[in-house]
Design a protein around this nucleic acid. Sequence first.
RNA 1: CGGGGAGUAGCGCAGUUGGCUAGCGCGCUUGCUUCGGGAGCAAGAGGCCGGCGGUUCGAAUCCGCCCUCCCCGACCA
Length: 584
Amino acid sequence: MGVGLPSINLINIMRWSKYFIPTLREVPSEAEAVSHRLMIRSGLIRKLASGAYTYLPLGLRVLQKVQNIIREEMNKQDAIELFMPSMQPVELWHESGRFKDFGEDLITYKDRHNRVIVFGPTHEEVITDLVRNHINSYKQMPVTFYQIQTKFRDEVRPRFGVIRSREFIMKDAYSFDEDWEGLDKSYQKMYEAYENIFKRCGLKAIAVEADSGVMGGDVSHEFMVVSDSGEDLLAHCQSCGYAASLAIAECIDKEPETRAQKPEKELPLKEVDTPGVTTIEKVGHLLKVKPENMVKTLIYAADEGPVAVLIRGDHDANEAKIKKFLKCQKLEMANEDVIKKITGGPMGFSGPSGLKDVKVIADSSIKGMSNFVTGANKKDAHFINTNLDRDFKVSEWADLRVITDKDQCPKCNKNIKIEHAIEMGHVFKLGLKYSKAMKAEFVDESGKLKPIVMGCYGIGVNRIMATAIEIHNDNKGIIWPLAIAPFQVLIIPINYKEESVRKATDAIYEELNKAGIETLLDDRDESAGIKFNDAELIGMPFSIVIGDRGLKKGKLEIKIRATGEILETKKEEIKDKILALLVA
RNA sequence: CGGGGAGUAGCGCAGUUGGCUAGCGCGCUUGCUUCGGGAGCAAGAGGCCGGCGGUUCGAAUCCGCCCUCCCCGACCA
């Protein structure tokens, strides 16, 4: 299948009875997240298998509207649309070095000629291949390409319906520049496009600095929308607006302040029995010491051998920060043998004093501590009253931990909040990663051969749909933002079979059609209650209720989904009133 | 991959000390009545009880293996 979704002109009007909107009265047992439930109940999607969904007509319309918004904003920034294959020769992935990086997430198969084909999880390789063959001169840059296309990733755990699926629709863009200044400009343009896109889709996206992960590159920003169904955690400052993903949010541990809390006297180091007790929680319980008065010693295996990392008991080690600090590629917890060699004791009882042949780095928050509990590097034993410098030495200090909600904002010192968020988009300054690996070079003005400077930019299209629902709903159903609502107006005739109602309904339906208003007509032979409830469930911004009761007075009702407001309107003024509402 | 939960009609569920023809609500079909917030009456259709194997006179129910789905974690746009 051509998995892309071409831009189309949406059909303006539709009769419910001739369409396909399978709404559900009851909550499907498989769905837990609000958006997931509502998407199934309102007939937007159906599941085929874990992480693979059918978009039903109403859902498809939303996707198409989102895509059209994306296209408009991308085109506005001079990005050029193209369409690349999902089937990609594995050689490209070896060339870029990402075959290993992606690992099991890559979905591959062998074709009949025994060639290994990758189902594209993203398209840096393909676009770089294209560009290296056709862009050879600085005169052809800057240029940014984009596509809207289905991606495939064998996610470990697909969840929350369409929010994390194995097959998903992504807008991916790639910029090519002759130098870093150029990249900065291209990046900025995409950044602006993204802000506009999310805003137009009714989402308040926060741009946060992020870890580049498997994409590579130095600078990257994620566009996050705060939501309980978010898989990511955000450190977010309510006062100054600072926001960063938990993985990189900076921790401020001011030495003078923390030092001040130090008691005057250092007590003598003492070994205590802690049989079989290894976790911070249990040790703390046994010794009646709070986690913040304990220090855990984590032995990591890094590129250049083992490293001991000291973290306060109530904090979590931040591997992204540790990696960055050590400038290493790989970082994993050391195994039992290595721990024994370095600490002399078994796993679970490691402490900073008496470590051999290992670099000791510590999180800055430890500087202010005294008389704390540590492992004794000996089976079933811990030390109490451990003290810095006296009992052990730290070779380097750094921010190595994960921020908590007890921390302060690194920018304004106010309290920081940890919130769940959904990642809607991610932009990366890739730099030379792919152009070097895959030799995408160009000749600059002075005739020199240089690698192209790249950026890449992704948006989860189906995720915008799910997130919009996640944000805009009530206990009755979805409340679509106007720009991405499947239809702008729903006409609800009460007893459509009755001639006077049908005539009035058909006339208005036709009138709205002529005015170019996207209208769905609920012409089903259902009771008023069912129609009202379904209307609230599928959440069109405006409904027009046409019933005998009002018709006798020459009046109809316009219901506003978001507010529940009912506007009594003269029959003749319906169209103008709706037009006014659409613009407002 | 670790931990937890679940698979019985399109949806939501009951039935599981082994026992009759597998049930209920919603939805669906037909007819009549109804018609401004999930209508009433009547008559229907719809099941390999997730799969395979075992125990047994007899299995939705007991045992074994497998599959699928959901949640938490690890991991990840």
